[in-house]
Design a protein around this nucleic acid. Sequence first.
DNA 1: TGTCATGATTACCT
DNA 2: AGGTAATCATGACA
Length: 352
Amino acid sequence: MRLDNMLLAEGVAGPEKGGGSAAAAAAAAAAGSPTDNSIEHSDYRAKLSQIRQIYHTELEKYEQACNEFTTHVMNLLREQSRTRPISPKEIERMVSIIHRKFSSIQMQLKQSTCEAVMILRSRFLDARRKRRNFSKQATEILNEYFYSHLSNPYPSEEAKEELAKKCSITVSQVSNWFGNKRIRYKKNIGKFQEEANLYAAKTAVTAAHAAAAAVQNSQTNSPTTPNSGFQMKDEEFQLDSAENKNTLLTNMFTGSSGSFNLPNSGDLFMSMQNLNGDSYQGAQVGANVQSQVDTLRHVISQTAGYNDVLGGNPMYSPHGLNGNGGWQDATTPSSVISPTEGPGSVHSDTSN
DNA sequence: TGTCATGATTACCT
DNA sequence: AGGTAATCATGACA
């Protein structure tokens, strides 16, 4: 009975078609695995229907064999009845023995079918089994976000959705990725230093380009644009050439602020993005770099389009690394936390 | 084949 | 609900 139910649930013994895919979807949902992997699921369905077909043909065969064998035995008994008296009870007994035998065979068939389905399920739908590394591009996108939000690598639901779309993965995969990344980064910051440098530099180059474009734009198109927050007088920071942009980067990551310490360097970049001055963790970087950062920040703040990616990103909520190396918003006043997000209820600002 | 990287899961926490 | 930490299981690579 349990086997029957199981086969029914798996869509093997149930009504034709639909059942299989429903079971597949249900199984996928139960396993928490992404349901967007249509290729594997169609493959799963194909295999399931194959099992289903085999099951039904075998079942039919057994039934046919059972009937044939029963009539054969009946014939034998009838023949024997000429030589000796055979009671209807005896016939009934023989028939029931045959049926029992065949039903036990059927049971075995059901059992092995169940096993086959289970194996199929685990092979196709067990997320761990079918773990695939994300595409290089996806990893790049995720890393870019992570390192450019290093002071608060907690993407909002919106941001996760955006990233998921960009990376062609699910939101829960994005969450998993960030969960793993945060833990592993925190555990072994040194190991990720190079990676952090790479992505921070990448982000900075993008920022500088955007900034330069904005500068050029404001100079050529809107001479009346106020220059209040953005003065190019900063001694080490000139945005009028690519070379200087690179110098800035070099300074930021290598020399001018003293030794480059990764967790801080990442924050430095974060600072560029979201700082409004008050949330900037100045203690973490040298004043020299800070001035550069501030300058760049001003430039960025003038760059309308860039806000989507950096500072003005509504999907980003500023949190800071705390003294323990965590990302809990210990350093960030609740007033600057974006209302659109935050690390959930776990570290909500109300807890402080 | 061993080892490391990495995506997913689980238990527990707030 | 969404976070961390530990762990599992598989992929990639030397």
